[in-house]
Write a protein that binds this DNA or RNA. Structure first.
Length: 478
RNA sequence: CGGGGUGUGGCGCAGCUUGGUAGCGCACAUGGUUUGGGACCAUGGGGUCGGAAGUUCGAAUCUUCUCACCCCGACCA
């Protein structure tokens, strides 16, 4: 059915122009639109529902780890931001500042939160008196504003939605453990909900969060070989606690500052799943966050009994707890097939006269394009199992893709070759800032994470050739 | 902020060199025929060409200025 190709909705060739492909897909599938203010995005219902499923899955996990949700104000007095030296330096260039209300100039300028450590610390200093108040485990869902120079929907926008956890602990071990635990929560979430494989580890000094002692990160690999920092957790030490005078009286009668963590993931995750799973036909959504898990398409709907049977099938699946859409719009079936593939629905069921005669529904998987039939009587049991299989297959694909695109490199020649092949580079590094900066300047790749498993992959720094002790993943990134 | 590019119905584009007051595809609307991989026919609605000034009898087209957006670099979840 080539026709003249003139009715085909074109999506850019992802192998040739990945950024364009990304933009085409998110706009054409009605995930987002551009906002009127440069760098902002409108998340449309189809995209927002993905976010809701992400929120639901994370909230469930936060509850299990003892965290409570709360909400703090969006406006933060500028003076708060100034209290932690590294923090100001890191965020000052990109904060939006409120200076006026109407025509009146404000006595104290307000920043629109780029992150909430400072205002939350201010409140924590009032709430914490005793070691009995600790640990304090709070999360908030909010929007934050960071006026970045270049933006792209989901990946980097001037305003974005996220979740930020902020905790206080009596001991360093407990706080560091919390940061590591939440990183593991994120990793498990990526594995079991978004079906994305990630590398986890520690950020270098250069790349860590402004104000943190240590930053842990998970990095996902996009289909063009770039890395996307998909979530971070921070061990903040006492940096903020002392700056904001959060103090408690310990059992030993001493007044102490607690140890602190913060951690977050954002709507960037939606960008991650688009760029980690998509293909030439468009989105490929993992079933556990897909707004429409199963689309039911009546074939030859004008024939007697077809619409009725399709409706019945959709109802059966809804009762089985699935998110189902019956697409009975007045379009050709081919058009609908293509549309739902582009929109990433994991599973399509077709109900036509032939199927009804045979007592089956025809299915087509979005992940493998495999087709088959399921007996109508078995739908409620088999479709959920099929969705689980799609999830596992998608994770497997993500896992294999990442690990087959990591190259161990010992010198810059290998390094550059690996980057050209869209691989992550695993290499040794001497640990000095000069080499890290030089590598970034020359190759546009940055040190993404130092894996927890520091098994050496050589003995010399990939850049300067001096003895090296750190194993690092380098990659170009979003 | 440095380098490159683009602005013409909702979207994608043609027209510009050789000025003569807009055209195509998609989308949209109505009617009909269709429907197992992006259907077809007919009819119809919608733009004054990013903005301003200038040249000219006449400007989407030429000149100058300006604005906006996009891509590549420096900054970042």
């Amino acid at each position: 059915m080539e026709k003249d190709n003139k009715f085909v909705q074109e999506i850019a060739d992802m192998t040739e122009d990945f950024p364009r492909w990304y933009t085409d897909v998110i706009l054409k599938t009605e995930l987002v639109d551009y906002g009127p203010v440069k760098g902002t995005m409108v998340i449309r219902p189809y995209g927002y529902e993905i976010w809701e499923h992400i929120q639901e899955a994370l909230n469930k996990r936060f509850k299990e780890t003892g965290h409570k949700n709360a909400y703090f104000p969006m406006f933060i007095p500028l003076s708060y931001l100034m209290k932690e030296a590294e923090h100001v330096e890191g965020f000052a260039p990109e904060v939006a500042l409120v200076t006026h209300v109407g025509n009146t100039e404000l006595e104290e300028k307000l920043v629109v939160r780029p992150t909430s450590e400072t205002i939350i610390c201010d409140m924590y200093s009032k709430w914490v008196q005793s070691y009995r108040d600790l640990p304090l485990l709070i999360n908030q869902w909010a929007n934050v504003v960071r006026w970045e120079k270049t933006t792209r929907p989901f990946l980097r926008t001037s305003e974005f939605l996220w979740q930020e956890g902020h905790t206080l602990h009596t001991t360093e071990e407990e706080a560091r453990g919390e940061a590591l635990k939440m990183l593991e929560v994120y990793r498990e979430f990526m594995r079991n909900v978004l079906a994305i494989e990630v590398l986890t580890g520690i950020k270098t000094e250069k790349e860590k969060f402004a104000g943190a002692v240590e930053t842990y990160s998970m990095e996902a690999m996009m289909l063009d070989g770039k890395s996307l920092q998909s979530g971070t957790t921070h061990f903040l030490g006492k940096n903020f606690a002392s700056a904001f005078e959060i103090k408690y009286l310990d059992r030993d009668g001493q007044i102490k500052n607690p140890y602190q963590t913060s951690w977050g993931v954002s709507t960037r995750l939606i960008g991650a799943l688009i760029m980690a799973h998509g293909d030439q036909r468009g989105l490929k959504l993992p079933p556990r966050v897909a707004p429409v898990q199963v689309v039911v398409i009546p074939v030859a709907a004008h024939k007697a009994g077809v619409t009725e049977k399709a409706t019945e099938v959709a109802d059966t699946l809804r009762k089985a707890g699935l998110r189902v859409e019956l697409d009975d719009r007045d379009q050709s079936v081919g058009w609908k097939f293509n549309e739902w593939e582009m929109k990433g629905a994991p599973l399509r069921l077709e109900i036509g006269p032939r199927d009804i005669e045979n007592g089956v529904a025809a299915y087509s998987r979005r992940d493998t394009h495999e087709k088959g039939t399921i007996k109508l009587a078995d739908l409620a049991a088999e479709v959920p199992a099929l969705l689980d299989d799609i999830h596992e297959t998608m994770y497997r694909q993500s896992h294999d893709f990442l690990h087959s695109h990591v190259t161990v490199c010992h010198d810059m020649k290998e390094f550059n070759a690996a980057l050209d092949n869209k691989n992550f580079v695993k290499a040794m590094w001497c640990g000095c800032r000069e080499c890290e900066d030089a590598i970034k300047a020359e190759t546009a790749a940055s040190a993404r994470v130092m894996p927890f498993d520091q098994t050496p992959v050589g003995d010399k720094c990939v850049y300067c050739g001096k003895p090296a002790t750190k194993t690092v993943y380098f990659a170009k990134s979003y």
